[in-house]
């Protein structure tokens, strides 16, 4: 789902969450001692819907939880998996930790960058892929590894990249 246009234009000054997002956040709050404790859950819920947490989403979440936008943003920026910038339709995360390093992750990284024609941290012009490094994915016996969206892929080889990425339009 893409971010509503008013978020970008800033024309609509009352940021909103969808009823589903609000319900999911309220469900978390109901099981926690106070509303602020749901801050991370809330941002992850919104990100799962929209791909990232925009300024407008952040403001809407802060209002729902009764906390300041600045406090919420300081939490957002602490965590690796909360994106404060838009990402492509598919996020490719390449493991750069030690077991994958031993199994050739540095070479693989260059191959993936060439294949997608992207550097680490970039999103393709057609909005299809964002390429990011990630720490150990807990599949070191199948190093080198990567994660595309929610799919863990092991024993990644340069030869199979075209085949692997085919499934992600």
């Amino acid at each position: 789902m893409s971010e509503p246009a008013q978020d970008l234009a800033g024309a609509d000054l009352i940021p909103t969450l969808s009823p589903e997002e609000t319900a999911a956040i309220e469900e978390e709050c109901a099981h926690l001692p106070d509303r602020e404790s749901a801050a991370i859950d809330a941002m992850m819920i919104v990100q799962r819907e929209r791909g990232w947490v925009s300024d407008a989403s952040l403001a809407a979440i802060a209002r729902l939880l009764g906390m300041s936008v600045a406090a919420l943003d300081s939490i957002a920026t602490f965590y690796n998996l909360i994106f404060r910038q838009p990402v492509g339709r598919h996020v490719v995360m390449l493991c750069d930790s030690v077991s994958c390093y031993v199994m050739g992750a540095d070479t693989l990284r260059k191959q993936v960058e060439d294949h997608l024609n992207l550097n680490m941290g970039e999103t393709s012009a057609d909005g299809r892929f964002t390429l990011l490094p990630i720490v150990c994915l807990g599949a070191c016996d199948r190093a080198p590894t990567m994660m595309v969206d929610e799919d863990l892929i092991g024993n990644v080889s340069a030869e199979q990249l075209a085949e692997t990425f085919k499934g992600y339009e």
Binding site: S97, V98, S99, V135, C136, G138, A139, C140, D141
Partner: peptide
């Protein structure tokens, strides 16, 4: 949390 690089048992 299992983020210790090289660890893949809890998953």
């Amino acid at each position: 949390d299992e983020m210790e690089p090289g660890t893949f048992k809890d998953r």
